[in-house]
Design a protein around this nucleic acid. Structure first.
Lengths: 233, 233
DNA sequence: CGCTGGCTTGAGGGGCATCAAAGACCGTGG
DNA sequence: CCACGGTCTTTGATGCCCCTCAAGCCAGCG
């Protein structure tokens, strides 16, 4: 029986990433072909249209998945945080450009090798299926936001989402403030708005004393009012 | 070895639906718990929020998957055609309301049973994973449309999509017209527009002699111009 | 200190929603 | 046969929400 690789034993996302579905001794096969890589803020990890050669787990940092149009309009279709999985094991080509929004650590596998491992590890495949289903559900929820919500509803909902995401990684009780992981401009690209509209909506929330804002730091003062502005659904 | 169930042998989507991943003799286990059901236009197959009890293959007809807001705003997040799969084998609750947009035939499985079969049939699970990945990619493509495209681009793109979908089921060469599977109002709910805007954009395309329109029938007269209006991306 | 990137604020216009009404299509029943 | 109601669609008039363009503010950093 192989030993738990040291790199994995000390991995910050050992129990959170896809690999959590593998026993310690199963991990070695994956680990044998993995390599760690640190990417810097702004660096593109994968270009849409390129050959797909890798999959990866996010160990730390934030990445965006985005599509864009020839004239430059961009839509962020997903944000990836620590523990999230990047890449499509079956696709020949990359469909979405993945860019680091902060410095980030990745645990990278060659795609072909990952696909091979998938064959022999049904638990890993099951985990991947569940995660893909979750991503699909999230994407569909965002479709409602993009298609039917007003700018005010979008921004209020986004703040609630981010609040939920950080408090999930922090255990219950910690209902203080948090820092937005991305800039105003990127929020605009998530919500299908312009940076000016995002900014105006945020100052409106600040003026209404619903949130306290300073740069990227956020404190929700009146969660109920914020939820009301998000509109439910 | 079990015999290929007669119902499956004559099934219109035998080679197209998820079951295509199963050998004839593996099909019996699935078939044993399946039942056919015909639903009529307008009938709701599954309500968001209800307990999830079924999965199904669409044998014929068109369904919509939609989310909505308390005030009634609706967003269609997916259209299901013959061969498509409906339901989430793992979810306890239904997340999206599924409604028949035409009379439709379904091949329905109890969710719990389907989940059990999944355990023993890796090829079936692999097929489901691939389809889920495809759905995710489609959803993300629509996010670009919803967030960043103009009304004119949305409608032009939609017509191209529908054209591609019907010609896919028809073999190559058949580049004539086709019928839209859904109403103007439903197109609006897919694209995040109002019915009036959809109508106006379509008459604009007709006036420009790019398409010929009569009710739901569509003939694309100038595919290049239509693609130009869709904006690429 | 000037430069750069991110954020805010203002003024103005356009795209799409909203409101309103009339036309097209269709099955139903008189 | 045709009047009738229902649903879907088209077309018009109006207004608002958000984009666009433009300027200025702030913090970090060479």
């Amino acid at each position: 029986m192989a030993e738990l690789p040291d790199r994995c034993a000390r991995c910050a996302v050992r129990d959170e990433a896809l690999c959590a579905s593998l026993h310690d001794d199963e991990l070695s096969a994956l680990n044998d072909m993995a390599r760690r890589r640190t990417v810097t803020k702004g660096e593109v990890v994968a270009w849409a249209g390129d050959r797909s050669t890798i999959c990866a787990n996010i160990v730390s940092g934030v990445l965006k998945l985005a599509t864009s149009m020839p004239d430059g309009r961009e839509q962020i279709v997903g944000l990836l945080f620590a523990g999230d999985f990047l890449g499509d094991p079956f696709a020949e080509d990359v469909s979405l450009t993945a860019t680091a929004l902060s410095d980030a650590d990745l645990c990278i596998y060659p795609r072909s090798g990952f696909e091979r491992i998938l064959e022999g590890h049904p638990k890993l495949e099951r985990m991947l299926l569940r995660r893909t289903i979750d991503s699909l559900e999230e994407a569909r929820g965002r479709m409602l936001t993009l298609g039917r919500r007003s700018a005010g509803e979008k921004v209020a909902g986004f703040l609630l989402d981010m609040s939920a995401k950080v408090s999930a990684g922090r255990g219950p009780g910690a209902d203080g403030g948090f820092d937005l992981p991305i800039s105003r401009g990127q929020i605009a690209d998530v919500l299908g708005l312009t940076i000016e509209t995002v900014s105006r909506q945020m100052t409106a929330l600040k003026t209404a004393a619903i949130v306290k804002l300073a740069g990227r730091s956020v404190v929700i003062l009146d969660r109920q009012a914020l939820a009301a502005r998000a509109g439910g659904g």
